[in-house]
């Protein structure tokens, strides 16, 4: 099996792929990026927390026109994972408004998004519809 690397460092691969956030130890605000301090309370203590892998689609758009090289159409969304908002694509679903809806229940999944010169696969994540 090819070597794999997560597309972003807040995606944890393995048997149970999930996202991990930096949570402020003072106020509980959560962030996915490298932090200098907390944007909510200004303090600088953080701890890693696992983000639930199931959630609800709170907003989406179907991008039909993108920058050169970005395949379209794709569904971009904000998913509410038990109180933590996550930015992601919706995948494994036709990119049309008949199939995508607000309030949809979804779960995290991963996919190969590219391979580098040494054969390492970049693994991205998205959310797919939860089976009824």
């Amino acid at each position: 099996m090819a070597e794999q690397i997560p597309l972003v460092d807040y995606l944890v691969l393995g048997n149970d792929p999930h996202l991990v956030a930096n949570e402020c130890t003072s106020c509980g605000a959560r962030f996915f990026d490298r932090r200098n301090a907390c944007a909510s309370c200004g303090r600088s203590g953080f701890t890693k927390v696992d983000i639930p892998t199931e959630g609800e689609v709170r907003a989406f758009t179907i991008v039909a026109f993108a920058a050169p090289g970005v395949p379209t159409p794709y569904v971009a969304a904000m998913v509410d994972c038990a109180g933590t908002s996550v930015r992601a694509n919706l995948i494994n679903i036709p990119a049309d408004p008949e199939h995508v809806s607000l309030g949809m229940q979804v779960r995290l999944t991963t996919e190969v998004v590219g391979t580098d010169d040494e054969g390492t696969e970049a693994i991205g994540f998205g959310f797919e519809p939860k089976e009824a």
């Binding site: 690397i5 997560p6 597309l7 972003v8 460092d9 807040y10 996915f32 990026d33 490298r34 991008v63 993108a66 920058a67 970005v70 395949p71 379209t72 794709y74 971009a76 969304a77 904000m78 930015r87 992601a88 694509n89 998004v113 590219g114 580098d116 970049a122 991205g124 994540f125």
Partner: peptide, 12 residues
């Protein structure tokens, strides 16, 4: 975000 490739269109 420690990204190894562009994320526009891949992560929202």
């Amino acid at each position: 975000y420690g990204a190894v490739a562009p994320v526009d269109g891949r992560i929202g």
